[in-house]
Design a protein around this nucleic acid. Structure first.
Lengths: 248, 248
DNA sequence: ATTTCTTTGTGTCATTTTAACACTTTGCTA
DNA sequence: TAGCAAAGTGTTAAAATGACACAAAGAAAT
């Protein structure tokens, strides 16, 4: 969508996106970064987000933010929660930030949080009109964020943890071809606890939503792992019979 | 809260509440009713809701709506989803309705949906400033509602179905004392399918979140059922160890 | 070429959980 | 006292889970 100014902003509603990525080791979150002398995360980093246009739906707004930032479309993106506390943008460092990006920095804004799962290696995030600088940060290293974004992030993570037990959405974080070890690590990263390797593999195989490819890792200094891909047809079949135990 | 006019309305954000009740037979939903010649549900019934005040949080607004309607406070009430489609209030019958209740009937409104679980016998719903007439309607008999409220309702129901498998929130729909048959029927009503009586009771007893009282039904023309109450301490213990398999 | 290193990949058993299924008991009513 | 209607109860087979250890593959180093 070209950035002509046919769209009128709605100054009371924004969307914020918690974009999760996975580097095969740990979960990462895509943040926008602001120039500031301050070292603390609350004044330096925020979730990507934007005011919605008055002629676009909430999902469209979230997809727009995601696309401007990542170039990606048709990506896993789900609403998690509306955050609307009266004082959610009232910290001093927040007010400064808002003055630099909003025409009405003092208006009350309710934000609709989304979370998205992306294959982190499939693109380079690019600056956009609401984000001069974009960075991946390990989830575990984030201790605070601007506004109420840290709360939003934690809520999104909890939502992800709950959801992955009901639907195998984690595949969205991986490339098309992946190894079972990568998938295993991913589940451990999301759930924040260790999972028995054999039990994990047994269940994945039994669910039959993962398909073995005729291809192995090359160049790794150890036994190469087989590649697999997600079997979406079998997954659909399970869903049709209301199966919802994808957890560990 | 007295209805002085210190509060300024935010004309872009509302909350709508899906208030579920249980009559020991089926799920009911509390709707507000409008005077109209039309027979169709879309022009007659809507979910209770209101614009938020500019100085109140989303949860406060939802609790306010709930309280004005039911007199109840400290009731189970959780956010389910924000609904913000551009055209969500654009049907002709909807426009008429809005003109009768809003000062700015044409402004775009995003609504934050909440769902609440109440003991339907514990109160008589009372009209309020946003609801001349209030009625309980069986969930199964609702085929449409004003605005996008039917979609909101169905989403809330699905949320309830998902949630009750993770947390035993259904107790909120029952009085303090209840029979296991009532609890059983409640789960069937929420999940929309039959559950084996013995398996249901076995699991409830094993979870140990239900406590047998020294009291039976009286005056029923059959074997009287024992009363039970929810054991919140044991429930907390389960939660602490991250137990989340309360489903059937 | 042999050894070493690192990660992959695999099976069993005991326990727990689930699903399917039918008859007796209780108290009221006729 | 016979009949009714819902409450309450147990077993068994199948499936799912959790705990646990060692051999195989390929690369790298010597």
């Amino acid at each position: 969508m070209p950035k002509h100014n046919a769209h009128r902003l709605n100054n009371g509603i924004s969307v914020d996106c918690v974009i999760f990525g996975f580097d095969f080791e740990k979960l990462q979150v895509l943040l926008i970064e602001r120039e500031t002398e301050s070292e603390d995360q609350a004044s330096r980093y925020a979730l990507p987000g934007d005011l919605i246009y008055d002629d676009e739906n909430l999902n469209q707004a979230a997809n727009r933010v995601l696309k401007e930032l990542t170039g990606l479309e048709n990506i896993f993106l789900e609403q998690c929660k509306a955050h609307g506390d009266v004082n959610r943008t009232k910290r001093k460092s927040d007010r400064e930030w808002l003055k630099s990006v909003r025409t009405e920095p003092n208006s009350r804004v309710i934000t609709i949080a989304y979370y998205s799962l992306v294959n982190l290696n499939a693109f380079k995030p690019s600056p956009s009109n609401f984000a001069k600088s974009v960075v991946w940060k390990p989830l575990s290293e984030i201790e605070d964020l601007a506004f109420d974004h840290f709360e939003i992030l934690n809520n999104a993570w909890k939502t992800l943890q709950t959801k992955i037990k009901l639907k195998p959405i984690g595949f969205n974080l991986l490339p098309e071809k992946f190894t079972l070890s990568q998938l295993h690590k991913l589940y451990e990263a999301i759930l924040g606890r260790e999972l028995d390797k054999r039990n994990f593999r047994r269940k994945m195989m039994k669910l039959d939503i993962v398909e073995r490819l005729d291809e192995k890792q090359v160049g790794v200094p150890h036994k190469p792992s087989n590649f697999y891909k997600f079997n979406i047809e079998n997954y659909q079949k399970l869903i049709e019979e209301d199966y919802d135990n994808f957890g560990f």
